[in-house]
Structure formats: structure tokens, C-alpha cells
Computed example of a mutant assay.
Amino acid sequence: MLTSSRQCRCCGATFAQLLSLACDRPDMCPEDMPQQDNTAIIAERGDVLTDDFCRIGDLHFLRCVLAVPLIGGDEEEFVLGTWASVSRENFDSYMDLFELRETETLSNCPAWLSNAIPPGMGEPVAGMLHMRPEGQYPELMISETGHPLYPLQKNGAQLEELFDLLYSYGHDMASLVYDA
């Protein structure tokens, strides 16, 4: 895809491959809430945002990935780093095994996509978190067939569709790929 490192014109980041988006917090998490070390989720009461966990009131969130296969891309995937809301029980079970890097022993669990992807999608979207081995973030599979991400995950996406998604976030990746 990209044959050499390129610099994004909008944010200045350097990429050697197709950009993967990452959300630094669930959408409902205030922008001024500081991100803390993961230990804060246990050590502190109330609302907390860490690298991998978030608690806001009675809501519990886990960092996860949402992968979209690239059609004709030799099993390449476009990865969205995002957040999912889960039950307190599933949150606690995941946390118990997180440091041991044994979360794959958990069953898959219902979850809600907690970031507006694509932008402008306001309501949380139902999905299923699939646990992955060796301490990898769980993968969120969208289960609402009417959501724009559902067919992309199920059938894959053309490169142009991914460029459109990235462009909606302000990244002009098409120019990085096609401008030599």
C-alpha cells in the first residue's frame, strides 16, 4: 500500500502503512478528564480514564479494536482502536485477567461501540466483544445489520471506502498513497 514513509498533511504524523484510527477515550468521557496509568482504575473511586479502562458513573468501558478486512489486500485489515461499554461483571472479569494476559479465557460478551464511527453516528451500537490471545485487545464485532460498519466488517472494504472514512476524520490518506 504505502511503499515508503509519508507524512499526513493534516496532523503531521508519519505513516509507513495505512493509518489506523485510535480513539483516546469513549465519546461520553469529558475531554478534560486526564488519562492515568491503568492502576488508577483500582486505586481511585469515581470517574477514571486510563490507557485501557474507563469508568463514568455506573458505566464501564474497555479499550478494544474493530477490524475491517481490506478487499484484495492479502488479508490486510484496517484497524480502528475504539472503546466498548460492557457490564460491570464483564468489566471486572476482564480486569482480573488483564495483567496476567489471560483475557482470552473469558467468553465473548455483549458490548456497545462507544465512539461515533463514522462521525455523526450518535447512538451507541450493539456488538460482541471477542477475546483474543496473548494480551491483545478484544475485537468488537458490530451486530446491528443497519449500521455502516456491519457490511464493512462482514464483507470487507475497498481501499476507497477506507479513504472516505479517514477523510471524514480529516486525514487525506489518498494523497499519501497516490502522490509519489
Rank of each mutant, 00 (worst) to 15 (best):
L106P: 08
S107D: 15
N108M: 14
N108L: 06
C109H: 01
C109D: 03
P110R: 11
A111S: 06
W112F: 03
W112H: 09
W112N: 10
L113M: 01
L113E: 00
L113P: 02
L113C: 09
S114D: 01
S114W: 04
S114C: 10
N115K: 08
A116G: 10
A116E: 09
I117E: 10
I117K: 00
I117T: 12
P118F: 08
P119G: 08
P119N: 12
G120R: 07
G120Y: 11
G120L: 09
G120D: 02
M121W: 11
M121T: 13
G122F: 11
G122Y: 02
G122P: 01
G122A: 10
G122R: 15
E123L: 00
E123S: 07
E123T: 06
E123K: 08
P124M: 01
V125L: 01
V125I: 14
A126L: 00
A126K: 07
G127A: 06
G127S: 11
M128W: 03
M128R: 13
L129Y: 03
L129I: 00
L129M: 04
H130Q: 15
H130K: 14
H130L: 13
M131R: 12
M131F: 13
R132L: 15
R132M: 11
R132W: 06
R132P: 04
P133K: 12
E134W: 08
G135P: 06
G135K: 10
Q136K: 15
Q136N: 14
Q136R: 14
Y137R: 07
Y137V: 01
Y137H: 11
E139A: 14
L140K: 02
L140Q: 02
L140A: 00
M141W: 05
I142K: 00
S143V: 15
E144N: 11
E144L: 00
T145H: 07
T145M: 08
G146F: 03
H147F: 08
H147L: 05
P148W: 05
P148Y: 12
L149P: 05
L149F: 09
L149N: 04
Y150V: 03
Y150I: 03
Y150H: 15
Y150P: 01
Y150C: 01
P151F: 06
P151L: 02
L152R: 06
L152F: 05
Q153E: 09
Q153I: 08
Q153M: 04
Q153R: 06
K154D: 09
K154Q: 11
N155G: 11
N155S: 11
N155R: 10
N155W: 02
G156W: 04
A157Q: 05
A157E: 05
A157K: 06
Q158Y: 07
Q158L: 12
Q158K: 12
L159M: 15
L159D: 03
E160M: 08
E160T: 15
E160D: 14
E161G: 10
E161S: 15
E161H: 13
E161A: 15
E161M: 14
F163M: 04
D164V: 14
L165Y: 02
L165F: 04
L165Q: 03
L166Q: 03
Y167G: 00
Y167S: 11
S168R: 11
S168G: 05
S168T: 14
Y169F: 15
Y169E: 07
